[in-house]
Write a protein that binds this DNA or RNA. Structure first.
Lengths: 190, 190
DNA sequence: CTTATTCTGTACCTACAGGTACAGAATAAG
DNA sequence: CTTATTCTGTACCTGTAGGTACAGAATAAG
């Protein structure tokens, strides 16, 4: 009774996400999106409504992805190893690909001016903080990490360090310099 | 022989800078600038050439300003006190004013796509790193700071932490949480 | 083989970004 | 009081962002 959609919604969402990630919201034109997503203008607007609505979906989608990736990294039995892997990923995306993290990019570009974006971002931050926090408390109980400090303070500290890596990486810091910074940053756990 | 300029170039440059700082490059329209600078379209284009050229001047101007401010803070005989003051300023501009640092904002928005912007930013980073580094070496010689680590590693670490504060502050972190983070961050100096 | 739904593609539209191009007023030096 | 320079203001221009609105092809269910 009906012609089926010829594209997979999630697949094209992923493609759109990558464009927003690389160029930012404002610098991305409808044309950029259509080219990347390989769908027609008609399908675009009937499926996603508008550029902004699509962006919001991308942001939520991205947030879910990094959240599950974060869980995966921190599932490493050695928490320091997990953190080093996270830092490597952060440095890769900041120094090499020059993309950084879509959440922080959007916070910088839009958060002060778009309430819905702000909500999504705050939510993502809260959730990832909890993931770090739980894992750190675990590490403290097992004696893997010093118990001198509050686990949530450590969690926020780590998040801040990683955000900083992303920022200075996009600003042109060398990969090698950042690896030294990571080494310094993680000393706090001892 | 000539009618003098009715506006002070540096004064209107400062006003333009604030607009770019708050809204970012792309989101700032010529109209925003004209309104803030209070000069006519004619004067605008004859004096500054184009939006982008004006932006580049603002970026250099900003860079010089924070550099001298940084020197001032670090001139504090107690280096930790100087760092705390810097962190307060960073947190203010990220959490309260939601502006953050124009250098990092521009890095995030434009650096991957604009060579000249990239040059200015890398230069600013290099200069501020040197300022930190010199002061830290001084602190190490006077015994104020542990000499276990390379001064330039510490400098880059501090810069990264401050950049991180700015990023998570704009992403909605609470001021109180960030102050805890600062406390954790500075432990490394002991 | 009709029908309901979805596809692709093109044409069209409005608003504004970003800038140019005068015309005409102001003013200090000579 | 002319002249050279700069000011203000308005009018105008081009390109593109961001979207709407069909027309006409495709296709699976019944």
């Amino acid at each position: 009774m009906v012609r089926p959609k010829e594209f997979d919604e999630e697949e094209v969402l992923q493609k759109a996400m990558i464009v927003f990630w690389r160029k930012g919201f404002r610098a991305t034109t409808p044309n950029d999106l259509l080219t990347a997503m390989q769908i027609s203008k008609g399908s675009f607007y009937s499926t996603f409504g508008s550029k902004r609505e699509l962006f919001l979906r991308c942001l939520r989608y991205y947030s879910a992805q990094i959240e599950s990736q974060l869980r995966e990294f921190l599932a490493n039995p050695n928490i320091r190893q997990g953190l080093v892997k996270i830092s490597k990923q952060v440095m890769d995306s900041a120094c090499n690909e020059k993309t950084g993290c879509l959440i922080y990019n959007s916070a910088s570009e839009l958060s002060p001016h778009d309430e819905e974006v702000d909500r999504i971002i705050k939510n993502a931050m809260k959730r990832s903080e909890k993931i770090y926090c739980d894992r750190i408390r675990e590490g403290q109980l097992s004696g893997e990490i010093s118990s001198d400090m509050d686990s949530s303070a450590i969690a926020r500290y780590l998040i801040t360090c990683f955000a900083g890596l992303g920022a200075v990486g996009k600003a042109g810091a060398s990969r090698k310099g950042l690896e030294e910074v990571v080494a310094v940053s993680l000393q706090i756990l001892d």
